[in-house]
Nucleic acid binder design. Structure first.
Length: 584
RNA sequence: GGGCACGUAGCUCAGUCCGGAUAGAGCGUCGGACUUCUAAUCCGACGGUCGUGGGUUCGAAUCCCACCGUGCCCGCCA
């Protein structure tokens, strides 16, 4: 609804400025501070002061004078306040918001008929998912959800690096070492069992005698060469390792939840010939140079050359990724990739090269996040340092369960939580808190992982917002039992309190927040919004009794606001990928 | 050495892209509110050279430059 109001304000300001013979290229529309009773404001008067040769307040007054709010549906009134033009919404704006929010899909924007592939996580299939990379699936999945709400047709892809040296080492180690020489796995799950071979193999390569290492290296090279040559038997040996590890990693990611429509393997682009095709075209580019026996690209604006074909004629990760991205461009209108900041240079090279190959690189957008570190340093699968995501989630659920049980005794309400309910709430709150903590922050900021902070259920966390949803459900449930129906539309006069109207204004913002998050690829703004919405709801909750309202009209109107709040909170949490519990 | 990111209250962060009204939250500390639709809530107090210095502007946390601090990157690895 805010989107409609903003469109009206743009039209009104542009019309007024034209009538005053002033330029209207910058309307200066902004959100006023909290204590100003307006929904939108314009500081355009400042910008035009010198042009118009008049002080800003005078210009603002003239603008207000030139606009008749009656011409618009959602603009209630315009007020000049100092140099600002403030926009007060009409009653119709509030009524229309409550009506729109009755839709369970509230916040879903019209279909854009645009397909987007969101590639995220894409962690090498070498072992358990650890917390260091947990930011990727959480941001990526939230991004995919936000884009879906914004009307895009979204597919989620995991790009599987199944062709590199690490995987060759892994395959060799898996075929070479005997399970009896390995430590017990940390968990009864395929990736925990498999990573033992990988670690053992890496240790061996570092510590074994030179000739033994040489033999091992020869076997590893043979695997790499087999993949390069498209040898089917080698491919199957590698696939067994990759698929097994990946199945375990996928199961962990599903807990977040983060699910994928497709796992796209790097070897696919070696096997179908497209990587060779890319190499051919790259060699024909003016920027291509043959130096030190290898084919390289001298990319504009980037100091370092990009090697795309080794001296031994084999391709590199980036070469295959070029073929991968050409495939994406062929099949999707837009491509979004979530990457760790350590991939920034490579990502720049990728874009620059795609540009040289005459692709429209506007189609590709990359979102970077900084690594999660432990207080004592980084996390590594190979070295086995770090915190496994499974452990973090288990611990979060355990702490949430304790929390639920502690609160059972204090509950005023004697509705019975069964054991199933406790378990459900512990999962929703525990995992929600971890996820929210990560998705609510700007991805570029560094995070140091600390147990207590990651698992704080108070603070500005998921449970605060989830609790609002539970409260809404509680009221709606009681209302239903008492036979009170939620009206599809409301008479705004029945919502006389500031608390109720402020809440409705907050609900009205939701579609605009989705649009902003999708346009800027910043899902964290949705998290910021959920806090504002939750705060407005809690004020309403305290000041406006619903079931025991003074008269049936007020009760009905408030009930509609609660139902709208529920939909807004539920969908905002859903867009973030955080569960919305019906009770807590 | 070069490139990129980050630096806002004791702590964790919004706000920065797109300059605009007295810089906002939470945690912590202190003090209050449960016979009232769930107190995982609410109300109040305390707490700020927006890293430092310059510049642009009517106006700078926001834009530009320099510097300081921290992180990441600078493989014929992925």
């Amino acid at each position: 609804m805010l989107l409609s109001l903003r469109a009206e304000v743009e039209d009104a300001l542009a019309t007024a400025l034209a009538a005053l013979d002033l330029p209207s290229d910058d309307l200066g529309i902004e959100t006023p501070p909290e204590d100003v009773p307006a929904v939108l404001a314009s500081s355009v008067a400042y910008r035009l002061a010198s042009e118009a040769g008049a002080p800003p307040p005078e210009i603002a007054a003239n603008i207000v004078e030139a606009i008749d709010a009656a011409d618009y549906e959602y603009i209630g009134a315009l007020r000049q306040q100092g140099p600002y033009v403030n926009v007060l919404p009409s009653d119709r704006y509030l009524e229309a918001t409550v009506e729109a929010a009755q839709d369970e899909a509230f916040g879903t924007l019209p279909d854009r008929e645009t397909s987007v592939v969101v590639e995220h996580t894409s962690a090498n299939p070498t072992g358990p998912v650890h917390v260091g990379r947990a930011r990727n699936p959480i941001i990526g999945d939230a991004l995919a959800r936000v884009l879906e709400y914004a009307g895009y047709d979204v597919e989620r892809h995991y790009y599987v690096n199944d062709a590199g040296r690490q995987i060759a080492v892994f395959t060799w180690a898996y075929e070479t070492f005997d399970e009896s020489d390995l430590p017990e796995p940390d968990r009864d799950s395929p990736e925990y069992e498999m990573v033992r071979y990988y670690r053992k193999g890496n240790t061996y390569l570092e510590e074994a005698a030179d000739d033994a290492v040489e033999d091992a290296e020869a076997e590893i090279q043979a695997i790499l060469q087999g993949l390069e040559d498209g040898d089917e038997e080698t491919y199957e040996r590698v696939s067994e390792v990759v698929d097994t590890v990946l199945s375990g990693m996928t199961a962990t990611l599903e807990r977040l939840p983060a699910e994928f429509d497709e796992f796209v393997k790097e070897t696919r682009f070696m096997r179908d010939g497209t990587t060779d095709d890319v190499v051919d075209r790259l060699q024909d580019l003016e920027a291509a140079v043959y130096e030190e026996d290898a084919w390289q690209l001298d990319l504009p604006e980037i100091e370092k050359n990009l090697v795309f074909l080794r001296a031994d004629d084999t391709s590199l990760y980036t070469t295959r990724d070029l073929a991968h991205h050409e495939w994406k461009f062929d099949n999707f209108d837009r491509a979004v990739t979530v990457l760790g900041e350590d991939h920034k240079l490579q990502a720049e090279q990728l874009v620059a090269t795609l540009d040289l190959l005459d692709h429209d690189t506007e189609q590709l957008e990359q979102v970077f996040y900084s690594w999660v570190n432990l207080p004592e340093g980084g996390m590594s699968t190979r070295e086995g340092t770090g915190v496994d995501l499974d452990d973090l989630l288990d611990e979060a659920i355990d702490r949430a369960r304790e929390e639920v049980e502690d609160r059972l005794d204090d509950r005023l309400r004697d509705d019975h939580l069964e054991a199933d309910d406790i378990e459900r709430i512990a999962h929703q709150v525990g995992i929600g808190a971890v996820r929210y903590d990560i998705v609510a922050k700007q991805p570029t900021k560094g995070i140091t992982f600390e147990w207590d902070r990651a698992l704080d259920f108070e603070a500005q966390s998921a449970p605060y917002v989830q609790y609002v949803h539970a409260r809404c459900c509680g009221i709606l449930g009681e209302a239903a039992s008492a036979g009170h129906e939620v009206p599809g539309e409301v008479d705004i006069d029945a919502l006389e309190t500031d608390a109720a109207r402020d809440l409705v204004r907050e609900i009205a913002r939701f579609p605009a927040v989705i649009e902003e998050a999708a346009d800027d690829l910043r899902p964290h703004v949705v998290a910021t919004y959920t806090r504002d919405l939750a705060e407005a709801f809690n004020t309403f909750y305290r000041e406006c009794p619903v079931l025991t309202a003074d008269d049936p009209e007020t009760r009905a109107a408030r009930l509609a606001v609660v139902a709208g709040s529920r939909n807004a909170v539920a969908n905002a949490l859903d867009a973030l990928g955080v569960a919305a519990p019906d009770s807590m």
